[in-house]
Amino acid sequence: MEADVTISLNKGVADPEGSNVKKALNLLGFDEVMNVRTMKTFRIDLATTDRVKAKKDVEEMCKKLLANPVIQSYQIELR
């Protein structure tokens, strides 16, 4: 089973990379770009078919390593 974990910055937390990309896109003539936020996705291959266990394990991974709750939140999608 595969799990996609997407880590994004919480609302209100500055995203310097996103702002720089927005500026660059505007400079390239994409005037309609209002805002850009960056996210990071980890695609995790799991040796299990148990969806409940997989969800629980991946949540634990997020808490232990993948996300810092102070500025980030995570979304898990099992595939």
Binding site: V13, A14, P16, E17, S19, N20, N68, P69, V70, I71
Partner: peptide, 27 residues
């Protein structure tokens, strides 16, 4: 900070980080 040993406002070592050292404003 990631370990929870700093700032450790509520206990010697918090279970989850209480602060973050995020990407510089200048990126």
């Amino acid at each position: 900070v990631e370990l929870g040993l700093l700032p450790a406002l509520d206990s010697r070592m918090s279970d989850y980080p209480q602060a973050s050292l995020a990407i510089n404003d200048s990126a």
